[in-house]
Design a protein around this nucleic acid. Structure first.
Length: 346
DNA sequence: AACCCGGGGCG
DNA sequence: CGCCCAGGGTT
């Protein structure tokens, strides 16, 4: 494999084929890149594009983010999922203020010490923002490398991961411009060397691709073994007045940590019976509608009930003006519940 | 090393 | 409906 032939082809291709994305400004801003990289962890570009500018407008700088409350940060993150990232980004901003006077550090080591920033994100910021020869490996890069080298091996194995980082390092050391090359690898994976039906006719490195030569592109990478989805049954209760609704805040860990929701009972074995709602203090529960919310790790069955005011008021329960719900951290599943309940408009 | 954590779009 | 995704932290 000629590393330089591969990197130069990719860099040339990227110069004319890069998508126009909000964080791809001509001069990369460290804070914008930090926010975009955290948002992009395990999340597709199209989802991030909608949330990116509003988030930056709300928190225009590291200092502004560091001074915000956790609830405010979570609210701005609402809908993006993996909400721990929002808390980590918030903690990260505070650490940058404390340790680096509010300036995003340029060294790989210092970046790696920050919360929410791992090997990939540190390499991405070091290379794309600060131009350093730091390798990056993510799902896209791994797939491209496995195909180029025609390696039908499990992508999650430690040996595979180590090999991919080694290859990425050799390539970033051979390339002309690390920022361009790293981003080109990911762009290729996202737009050309896609998981199903790669567009090999448009690929700038098809001449170097072992999988294309061998006719194995469709079987690389091997399918990831996936954990079985766990079932969760939620009964969410609507108790409202004309202008307000009762909401609770979820605990600080686990699923949808820290997010606001209709008062909700949960169990894993079966759906709730109305009597259980009564026992929990929700008088005269009346079933409105049910729906299924699917995530990567869970199948959540929501049953929405209407009830009169609680007979006992849990510590956690508070009235929220309906007009103010858009400033709260609320998951998409609960947004759907609020629409079904007629609290929010469809 | 295994497990946990959202959400939507696409074939 | 199964599959995928610009991962990182905790245990």
């Amino acid at each position: 494999m000629n590393n330089t032939a591969l990197t130069s082809s990719l860099e040339r291709w990227f110069a004319t084929n890069a998508r126009d994305l909000p964080w791809r400004t001509t001069h990369r801003d460290p804070y914008r890149s930090l926010v975009s990289e955290l948002m992009l962890q395990q999340t597709q570009v199209s989802r991030v594009v909608e949330k990116f500018e509003p988030f930056l407008e709300r928190f225009p700088s590291v200092a502004a983010l560091a001074e915000a409350t956790e609830d405010e940060v979570l609210a701005a993150w609402s809908g993006l999922g993996y909400y721990r990232r929002a808390r980590l980004l918030h903690t990260c901003a505070k650490a940058i203020v404390d340790r680096h006077e509010g300036v995003v550090p340029d060294s790989l080591d210092e970046l790696l010490k920050l919360p929410g920033i791992g090997r990939y994100t540190a390499g991405a910021i070091a290379s794309m923002v600060f131009g350093q020869r730091a390798p990056i490996v993510d799902g896209n890069v791994t797939r491209v490398l496995l195909r180029v080298h025609n390696k039908p091996i499990p992508q999650a194995d430690k040996a595979t991961v180590d090999w991919a980082w080694q290859r990425a390092e050799a390539l970033v050391n051979a390339c002309d411009d690390p920022a361009t090359f790293n981003e080109a690898m990911m762009e290729l994976g996202a737009t050309v060397c896609v998981p199903k039906g790669p567009r090999c006719l448009q690929c700038p490195i098809s001449a170097e691709c072992g999988a294309l030569a061998a006719g194995t592109t469709e079987s690389i990478p091997l399918p990831k073994p996936r954990a079985k989805q766990k079932h969760l049954y939620c009964a969410s209760v609507v108790m409202r007045s004309t202008r307000s609704v009762l909401l609770e805040q979820r605990p600080g860990s686990g699923m949808w940590a820290g997010m606001f929701q209709l008062p909700t009972l949960e169990r894993e074995d079966r759906a709730h019976e109305p009597g259980e709602l009564v026992e929990a203090g929700f008088a005269d529960p009346e079933h409105i509608e049910s729906f299924t919310h699917v995530t990567t790790h869970r199948i959540v069955e929501f049953a929405i009930y209407r009830a009169s005011a609680p007979t006992k008021t849990p510590e956690n329960l508070r009235k929220h003006p309906i007009g103010s719900l858009d400033t709260l951290a609320i998951s998409n599943a609960q947004m759907k519940a609020l629409r079904i309940a007629g609290i929010l408009e469809s």
